[in-house]
Structures are given as C-alpha cells and as structure tokens.
C-alpha cells in the first residue's frame, strides 16, 4: 500500500460504499491486516466487503474516526475526559435496534474499546432492574414452566424472580 493513501473504501453487507480514513481503520485488527495485505491504491479496483450492515457500519466508522487521533498519538487527560463524555452520548441509541449490531460488529472487527463500551451499555440497561423489567426491556420471553420456577425459588430462597 502506498503511504499516500489516506482513506479507503469498504462495502457494507448491504452493498453500500463507505470511506474510512487509514488511521481510523487501524483501530480494527482485521481492517489493519487488510491495509497491510490488500492493495488500496487508486489503480486497484477491488473493494473489500465488511460483514456489517450499513446502519451499523456508519456508527462503527463514526466511533473509529473519533477515537483514531487519540489511539494513534496518545492524548492528554482532558481529551480522555472529553472522549468519555462523547462515548456516553454516542451510546444513546435505540437499544433493541442497533446496540446489539454494534456489539456483534465490534466483536467481529476486534475493536476492544467499542466492544467494552457496548457491553457496558448493555449491562447498564440491566443494572438495578428486576427480572421482569429486564425481560420487558429486551423482549425476553419467560419460558420456565411454573414447576421450574417453583424449583428455582426453592434453590435460591434469597432471590426475587419478579
């Protein structure tokens, strides 16, 4: 790859094209390997596909572009503080719709920072909630029979099931 290339083009699983800067792509190990292995210069017309849908990929790229300067150069504490606030805002999204796609994408793209952020966000949604509240938030169906629930109650006398 020639060092003059500053951004690469990738395809989402829906077939849409996206541009991502080289420094941002380096946040993902598989993308970084692609940068090393595949020709991304202008005369190479092969565009790699990333198995992430367009809606999710937009968010993933947004995260990468925001975090790339700090990841590549190191930054001051005030920047880190600012970035943390940005992360919280960034994660305010429709849980059922996109959070889990982000989680899967971060896992697939080996992006540790984003993966931990998504896990933390999902866990925060469960924190302090009762079992039935969590079921409601995530649309989890209670598939225990009443006998099974009775047995669980006996096994865990100190726990609440509702």
């Amino acid at each position: 790859m020639s060092s003059s290339v500053e951004a690469i083009t990738v395809l989402s699983s829906d077939g849409d094209e996206f541009k991502i800067t080289v420094s941002a792509a380096k946040l993902s190990k598989p993308l970084n390997w692609m940068l090393e292995d595949v020709c991304f210069s202008d005369d190479c017309d092969e565009v790699p596909t990333i198995e992430v849908n367009s809606k999710t990929l937009v968010k993933v790229i947004e995260y990468c572009e925001k975090h790339a300067p700090r990841a590549n150069s190191g930054a001051s504490d005030s920047d880190a503080e600012e970035l943390k606030k940005w992360d919280i805002e960034f994660m305010k999204m429709d849980v059922k719709d996109i959070l889990f796609h982000i989680l899967m994408a971060a896992n697939y793209l080996h992006m540790e920072g984003l993966y931990d952020l998504a896990c933390q966000t999902a866990a925060d949604l469960m924190k302090g909630m009762t079992v039935s509240q969590i079921r409601k938030i995530f649309h989890i169906k209670n598939d225990f029979s009443s006998e099974e629930q009775e047995q669980l109650r006996r096994q865990h006398p100190g726990c609440s099931f509702d």
């Binding site: 989680l103 999902a122 866990a123 009762t130 079921r135 169906k141 209670n142 669980l152 865990h156 726990c159």
Partner: peptide
C-alpha cells in the same frame, strides 16, 4: 456483558429464561 454486572444481578439474570 454479565461481567460488567455485580454477581447478585448475574444470578438474577439467570432467571430470565
């Protein structure tokens, strides 16, 4: 995801389904 929760809540999560 569960590893971000206190253990008591992990146990509660095991009653989800």
């Amino acid at each position: 995801i569960l590893s971000f929760l206190p253990t008591k809540e992990v146990v509660a999560a095991s009653f989800l389904s």
